[in-house]
């Protein structure tokens, strides 16, 4: 039993990294614009689906297919920003309208994927096809190592981007005060598009990493988006590192829920954690970002 729990916690950490990356995607857009993008899950789904299509149907090598998918999905993020978010933004729409529009966009993308790729679940081969390592009696498979290593790498790169590049600093300036940033000559609206591209790329990357261990299908977006949102809430909305921590906590909690309650109610468990946090501590574990 103890072995099973430890093993579950381990796999929960892996899935939790993915939730964390998606949660960071929420934070990037939220910090740049104050918008909560409910179409975040579509990026995760597209990441897996595009990689699968490029890999399995057009025979591209997996790394190339993944890179192509990330670029294409980042582009899709910009398209979403141009077609849906920008017009509403310019008209000064309320937050509810923005949420509703991005949720509608999520459904449109989902249905387009269904039409284009069918309703069959797809999966990718694991990145390194070797038997799992045994560490302290636990089986550690290579995909888990890939997920954790890539997630940490992404976080380090993001931290470097936000702290030492000019563009990253400009985006942080936008998150502190958009008007003041505009007065400093920062192109605020271009930063919004950039935030969507970055966030979409993060989502796609998460989708590619997780697909070999689970599967991807047209309808995986909403559950992933909600898990990412829960991660962001638990970590205190707008804090990327908090979101990553929140993601890992959520992943572990969900894994334990599967052990003790059965897999049927794992989504109910995650949603209940969300409600609990919203009711008891809506500012997250670490408090609000500002």
């Amino acid at each position: 039993m103890l072995d099973l729990v430890a093993q579950s916690i381990l796999s929960g950490i892996g899935v939790g990294c993915i939730y964390g990356l998606i949660g960071i995607g929420f934070c990037v857009i939220y910090n740049a614009s104050g918008i909560v993008n409910f179409a975040q899950g579509a990026f995760v789904m597209m990441g897996g689906m595009v990689t699968y299509t490029a890999f399995a149907r057009y025979g591209l090598p997996l790394p190339l297919a993944a890179a192509l998918a990330i670029v294409l999905v980042a582009f899709a993020g910009v398209v979403l920003e141009r077609l849906v978010v920008r017009p509403l933004w310019n008209r000064g729409s309320t937050m509810f309208v923005m949420i509703l529009a991005t949720l509608a966009a999520q459904i449109v993308i989902e249905r387009l994927a269904l039409l284009a790729a069918g309703d069959q679940p797809r999966t990718l081969p694991v990145f390194t096809d070797r038997p799992p390592l045994r560490i302290l009696g636990l089986a550690v498979n290579f995909q888990f190592l890939w997920i954790v290593a890539c997630s940490l790498l992404v976080i380090v790169l993001l931290a470097l981007f936000f702290s030492s590049t000019k563009t990253g600093k400009a985006m942080r300036a936008c998150s502190i005060n958009r008007d003041a940033a505009a007065l400093q000559g920062i192109p605020v609206s271009r930063m919004l598009a950039l935030a969507f591209a970055l966030s979409a790329a993060l989502g796609a990357f998460a989708g590619i990493l997780i697909t070999p261990t689970q599967y991807t299908a047209f309808n995986v977006g909403v559950p992933f988006a909600i898990s990412g949102f829960i991660a962001a809430i638990v970590g205190g909305f707008g804090r990327p590192l908090g979101a990553f921590t929140g993601g890992i906590l959520l992943g572990v909690a969900q894994a334990l829920a599967i052990v003790f309650l059965g897999s049927a109610f794992k989504n109910v468990a995650a949603l209940s954690i969300l409600l609990l946090f919203l009711f008891v501590r809506p500012t997250g574990l670490l408090g609000p970002a500002k």
Binding site: V36, F38, M95, F96, I99, V222, I226, F229, I233, A264, F265, N267, V268, L271, S272, L274, L275, L278, F279, P282
Partner: peptide, 28 residues
């Protein structure tokens, strides 16, 4: 009672979660 103390995207997400929980329960 607890949900309506929330505002903005917190309210939106909490209500979305309630709807999804009902759906999941109906399925499972």
């Amino acid at each position: 009672y607890p949900v309506l103390r929330l505002r903005g995207h917190y309210l939106a997400m909490a209500t979305l979660a309630i709807g999804l929980i009902a759906y999941e329960v109906a399925v499972q």
